[in-house]
Amino acid sequence: MIEIRHLSKTFRTADGTVEALKDVSLTIPDGDIFGIIGMSGAGKSTLVRCINMLEKPTEGSVALDGVALETLSKKELRTVRQKVTMIFQGFNLLMQRTCLKNVCFPLALAGVPAREAEKRALELLDTVGLKDKANAYPAQLSGGQQQRVAIARALATQPKVLLCDEATSALDPNTTASILELIRDINRRLGITVIIITHQMSVVESVCSHVAILDQGTVVEQGEVGEVFSHPKSAAAMRLVFPEGSPDAPVAAREGERFIRVVFNGAHATGTPLIARMAAQEGIEANIAYASTRSIGDKMFGSMLLGLTGGEEAVSHAIDFLTQMPDVLAEEVSVHVS
């Protein structure tokens, strides 16, 4: 379990101080996939870097299984970091070494003999589906493959916690989906706690069970993903749920209108025919209040906000219809600004 208590981080720069984190408190249960979402500059990277003490908190505490990390010596911290590993937006592989040697890197640091390390590294490359690339150099791999190698490397020391800082932000939606699938798989099979930092709703929605919304250095909302996103209370959550334009626009649209958010995570469908089909087959007329979807090949990613006027019955009917499609999430959204 990771317990973050009253964590603050202030940077001193030439032109004044920057309060990157202000009194952040979070509890991340073991085995969870925990999302931390926020706009650029919200302090997400700073928060995740405080979790492995790459950044020393100005105030507050980060405890891993009851051990306050800020009290540890540099040497003790290095041991902890073998158990709290990290993957990055830029993959950060050693470019002059083969994939195998990259995965061996943390094992060599931990003093594992070379032969044994290579054996383990090969197994890990197999886990991430890249056994045949063991002797390739990172430059010869695609971004998705590089991130897989980075994941294998992060797993090498059998960590308890995997920190992912924008790990899929440099990847296309299809590759993002496959990397997230891999992360979910690792979480399930190995029981590793995963912390996912992202600015993309779709990432949180597709893998996380809990989420914290970070806005200007403070946690403005946290809880179960479905709960937080279907009842956004803070302005920051509103902005995430209703990306472009203000939430009041759809709210003010029609009398008695209710909204559902539809999320496509690689669904085999094109959005509009689905909505059209819902109207034709189920007789539910939906007003598309907002849509941001992209199709890649025959798969669709993104989200929509549908306005429905048929009351409770229409809403649950529509949700039933939509969620029977594979890779489609739908939930009602309450739009009351607190």
Binding site: L54, R78, L93
Partner: peptide, 12 residues
């Protein structure tokens, strides 16, 4: 970032 990666893995 590569140096930071190494630090994050506990490299001295």
């Amino acid at each position: 970032n590569t140096v930071e990666m190494a630090q994050s893995m506990g490299a001295s």
